[in-house]
Amino acid sequence: MNVKDLRIALFSGNYNYTRDGANQALNRLAEYLIRQGAHLRVYAPVVPDADFEPTGDLINVPNIRMPVKNRGEYRLPLGLNGAARDDLEGFAPNMIHISSPDPTGHAALKWARERDIPVLASVHTKFETYPRYYGLGFLEPAVEGILRRFYNRCDALVAPSPSQIEELTAQGMHDDITIWSRGVDRDVFDPSKRDMEWRRSLGFADDDVVIVFLGRLVMEKGLDVFADAIVELRRRQVPHKVLVIGDGPARGWFEKALPGGVFAGFKTGRDLGVALASGDVFFNPSITETFGNVTLEAMASGLPVVAAGATGAASLVDDGKTGHLVPPGDAGAFAEALAPYCTDDALRLAHGAAGEQAARAYSWDAINQAVLDTYLRLHTARAAAS
């Protein structure tokens, strides 16, 4: 099949209304597919004043505010209404890509199976871990079971790291899972973006070692573990400062847990590159990411990374060379890993430089071609079986 014959319907729970790593990857993929000549239409919630303009044609699906405390900025897609179904029928896709196992994703999968259209699902986050951050940890086995049934009804999965593929395989999610990694924009994330004047404007001295958090301020990003590790560093009297880049519903909680921390707010584009490169150590305790875009961006910016040894970072951080991997949730171990970077300039600079070198391998076009190749493979297999 020729790329120009592909007609791809992409389903997303959040394509552009709230900026996050997953929808940044989806929009980059969309741009690449369109540039290669494929036909693409996106089905996702549409809201006024979205965070950014969508790439490609965006069709609204029925949705409500997420019925979870402190997550009202997200929308829950509710399926496919008549207008969305009519548009889908008119578009006549020959490939379905589902990026979120929400009610609309389930409806799209059912629609595709009824018409014998191949379905690719991309895994962007560890949904089964979310209940624990809202006092509902007992639901995790049920959520995992729902995900297993959903993913096994798809033709194949793509996931962003070898460690994530190993975990999905162990969970029985599918037996056809390939890599769709993530890239990094080196025009934005680079050590040359470091700005000492910007640092000084926030009250940091030139010789301060600044530990950076970057991400949406929601509890599932490991904010409690981050705060506990910083408290432990202070208890040990390890010299450091804290810079938080990002915003979200848990900001008030995080500010109270990190007295003296500098909260720079939400940043994007060049401003984000400057903020990240102007730190000294990146600390990412989250276990919910399947890849960890922010970890790669920190590496490209020349920062050593201390991260949870979970699927998001395990395939990026070379333990002992570009940073350290720590058992998830262990605040004391995180403090132990952070401390040497706060006191040993040579170690910090060496591991940061090694991470920057490793980040050079992540090209967006090569990464997105892997998804396009998977579309073509699935379509060829379906045609051969007909």
Rank of each mutant, 00 (worst) to 15 (best):
D51H: 14
S181W: 06
G183M: 10
P285H: 10
A250D: 15
V242Q: 06
F291L: 11
A313W: 09
V46K: 11
F91E: 08
H97S: 01
S363T: 07
V188S: 04
H379Q: 14
F11L: 04
P118W: 06
G72Y: 05
Y151G: 07
E220C: 03
Y32F: 15
V317N: 10
F226V: 00
D345Q: 13
H106W: 15
F91I: 09
Y130D: 02
E289D: 15
R200K: 14
T18E: 09
V262Q: 07
D87W: 01
I34H: 02
V231F: 04
L78W: 07
V209I: 15
P340W: 04
T18K: 13
L303C: 02
D345Y: 02
P101R: 12
E356N: 09
L6K: 09
S163N: 12
G320W: 11
R115G: 02
L76M: 13
P327D: 14
L372N: 08
G312Y: 06
A383D: 08
A275M: 01
D271L: 12
G222V: 00
H240W: 06
M173Q: 11
E289S: 10
N81F: 03
E356K: 06
P340C: 12
P239S: 08
Q24G: 05
D190M: 04
E128W: 14
R132H: 06
N94E: 05
A331K: 01
A257L: 01
D208H: 12
F283Q: 09
V262N: 02
N293M: 13
R186K: 13
P101C: 12
L303T: 01
L303Y: 01
D208K: 07
V305K: 08
A358W: 05
Y130F: 15
D5H: 14
Q369F: 02
A385H: 09
A313N: 13
Q164P: 02
L78V: 04
N16I: 09
R35Q: 12
A112N: 00
P259L: 08
N27A: 09
D195Y: 05
N14Q: 12
R236F: 03
I177W: 05
S201Y: 06
L372Y: 05
L316Q: 14
D247K: 05
